[in-house]
Amino acid sequence: MSAGKSTNGEKAANAAHGRKQTRSGAWELLRTLVYAGLIAVFVRTFLFESFNIPSGSMIPTLLVGDYLFVSKYAYGYSRFSMPLAPDLFEGRILYHRPHRGDVAVFRFTQDTSIDYIKRIVGLPGDHVRMQGGQLYINGTEVPRTPLGDYIADDENGDHRAGRLYRESLPGSGGHKPVRHLILKQTSQGQYNNTPDYMVPAGYFFAMGDNRDDSADSRFMGTEPDDLGFVPIQNLVGRADFIFFSIDERDPIWAFWDWPAEIRWGRILHWVH
């Protein structure tokens, strides 16, 4: 037999070796995917979870099309920290009390499969009310400074014009006052003139920064979309920073407009 020719035995051995390498490669790929999945579940459950903003209730702090990371460890963990929210325990583990002024993601009181994002303005024991469009906490008017006119688009693409203010919520837990922006369109109406609400133990009072276009804790009735006081157990995490933002005003297929739709100035923008 001339050199370079393979015997049938050698061919069979090479084929078997090839199959073994293929199986080994497939197993390594599967193991890598399993490890990656476990790491992703760990990060999502205990560290950070991404959310996008679908509505204009937090304008001007958060815009429709913002994508942000929420820190899951900020308030400890409840069953709503877990994927699919299994009913394994009540309350929170490693609980850290939220602070007045935090922008928080939590589960809707009427349907805990729905995520909401609002600003925490009232903590257990606080008295919260609106009078003539002005926020009062524990009987004291929350100071605000007018900054001029403001126009923004809501989730329907409608222009929302109003007055921009810088509000200063009183600090809590030794923290300094939280200065943030709000949008006001009117001082009239039922939800600009509310009763005095005392936040019960184990709950907080949440409001949107777009004060006249936000279904928040001022809605205390029995309607399906009324939020009311929010149980602290419903907290998912604290909104920390925006990692991407896009103004989706053009059709998705118009790829040539994508760069112009990205809000470059909001990328890696901290939430205040």
Rank of each mutant, 00 (worst) to 15 (best):
G101R: 02
V34E: 11
H269F: 07
F48H: 07
T32H: 03
A13K: 15
L181W: 02
R163L: 09
N234Y: 05
N156H: 12
L62S: 06
Y136D: 01
F219T: 01
V142F: 06
A40M: 12
N138G: 08
L47D: 07
E141A: 13
A12H: 04
G9Y: 07
W270G: 08
S57K: 05
L68R: 02
V128D: 10
Y95F: 11
P195M: 04
R166P: 00
I232F: 01
D257A: 14
R218V: 10
S187P: 00
S245I: 05
A239Q: 05
T194E: 06
D149H: 08
D240M: 10
I232S: 01
R218T: 10
V121M: 10
H175N: 14
S217Y: 10
P231Y: 06
P177L: 07
I182F: 03
I267N: 01
P54L: 08
S78Y: 03
S113F: 01
L123G: 07
T61A: 13
H159K: 15
I252M: 11
L169G: 02
D209F: 05
H180R: 07
V230E: 04
G139Y: 09
G122S: 07
D213P: 00
Q131N: 06
G202M: 05
G228S: 13
G91E: 06
Y136M: 04
A254N: 13
A260H: 12
